[in-house]
Design a protein around this nucleic acid. Structure first.
Lengths: 235, 235
DNA sequence: GGATGTCGTTGACTTAGGTCAAGCTGCCGG
DNA sequence: CCGGCAGCTTGACCTAAGTCAACGACATCC
């Protein structure tokens, strides 16, 4: 049984937000909620996909193990975000693995529920497609960042995404530990430490898991500057 | 009017291959074919998406211009490949730009055609979703490669994808110029040159736009080895 | 209080890859 | 035949980031 508070969170997910409330509830009535403890695997790379996942609480990372053994973090999801839409009603394997990085409550929507409903409800297909497009777009942005920005600039972007405001000063809370942030950004933890140190020159000070930003606009200018001249723009 | 030879190519695309032949032909009857000369833009980043594209001949690159002005190549498509499925029947903007890198013939499938057919043909929604999933998967692989492999290893992977065989020796033709290959792999042309030079030690010799590979298995071992020890495996 | 463990930082060093400049082809147009 | 140009390679140099090791700050458990 899924509580009404959790239903409210789930209905805001990409998967359900475009559906009529009755329809969303019908989906949720046939789903179950599971709590994973920190470090637990939701599923592994190569397993047959049988569920769409909606995170209700906590943080979940999607990652891949490269042939050489290196772990590449692909995405990190939290409250209200869903994933696995695209492969839920085809017989496919998960191309990534998923792991709870904090204790996490997750709603598992069985693929067969979606498959059954999709015939009578075309909007559901639209929702799946729209959600998948958002993920696609996110990955395109990530590829762009990996190819066009230095590590320190990606760290700045990461902080900017956490900012509640567009200009001026603000303080943000780092959502998960620094090892994972480094993985998400494609750098090593040591490099993340050094990147934070360099960002001091651009008005960022990090203490524990809080980052104070003197000027959001200034930080954005650093993140979007040409890497070749990024160093010279101190202060 | 689209020739029957071109229809045959188009029907092999992800978008159409799962549909009944009559259905695929119905889609094509309402589409048009356009030839773009080298360097011409199919569409720009931020334009409203109104077509799904199927490449019939030539090569097309999808890329993004980062805020700092750098160009990041996201994908390169050729004969029989389609793209833009996910955003075709929602009112969305293209998140990337597309440009013909050789003279290219492309079929443009209007979004409204898809939108009209999807209500009566659920398989079409499946096709869109399946095609989008393939693109998603491709981007996940690309993120993994960027985060877990060195430039030279990505070059090796690129060659392996072109190989017609799984083992032994073979020769492949580089499909487009080296500046674009470098962009696709997220490195500079100079680094690509140096990567080819290093691959000589692993049995690869490049002359003009042909690459001779002494041992596909050996090259794969290099591509999948830990970057830290990749240097020591000189053959 | 002290042993232990995790997480994060710092330093010294090495390597991958970018930058800039020069040079080498092959090709096209005079 | 020559000049100019585009595509590619090479060399010298420099920065970004990985590696390895040491260490500090905390928290937990005994």
């Amino acid at each position: 049984m899924i509580t009404s508070a959790d239903r409210r969170i789930a209905r805001n997910s990409l998967l359900l937000s475009k559906l009529e409330p009755e329809m969303a509830d019908a989906v949720l009535d046939q789903s179950r909620e599971v709590t994973f403890e920190r470090g637990a695997a939701l599923f592994l790379q190569g397993e047959t996909a049988d569920c769409i996942h909606i995170v209700v609480d906590g943080w979940v990372k999607l990652y891949r193990i490269a042939p050489n053994g290196a772990e590449a973090v692909v995405c990190v999801f939290t409250r209200g975000q869903s994933f696995g839409e695209a492969l839920a009603f085809q017989k496919r394997d998960y191309p990534v693995a998923a792991e709870a990085v904090t204790e996490a409550r997750v709603i598992l929507v069985p693929a067969r529920v979606i498959a059954a409903l999709i015939r009578e409800t075309p909007e559901l297909a639209m929702s799946l497609l729209a959600a998948t497009f958002v993920h696609l777009h996110g990955l395109v942005s990530q590829v762009e960042q990996l190819k066009a920005q230095t590590g320190a600039q990606r760290v700045a972007e990461f902080l900017l995404e956490l900012c509640p405001v567009d200009e001026g000063a603000c303080t943000v809370t780092l959502p998960y530990d620094k090892v994972l942030i480094a993985g998400r950004l494609g750098i090593k933890p040591e490099s993340l430490s050094r990147a934070f140190a360099r960002l001091k020159e651009h008005g960022v000070s990090v203490r524990k898991n809080h980052a104070a930003i003197r000027s959001v606009g200034g930080l954005r200018a650093f993140a979007e500057s040409d890497p070749a001249e990024a160093w010279s723009k101190a202060l």
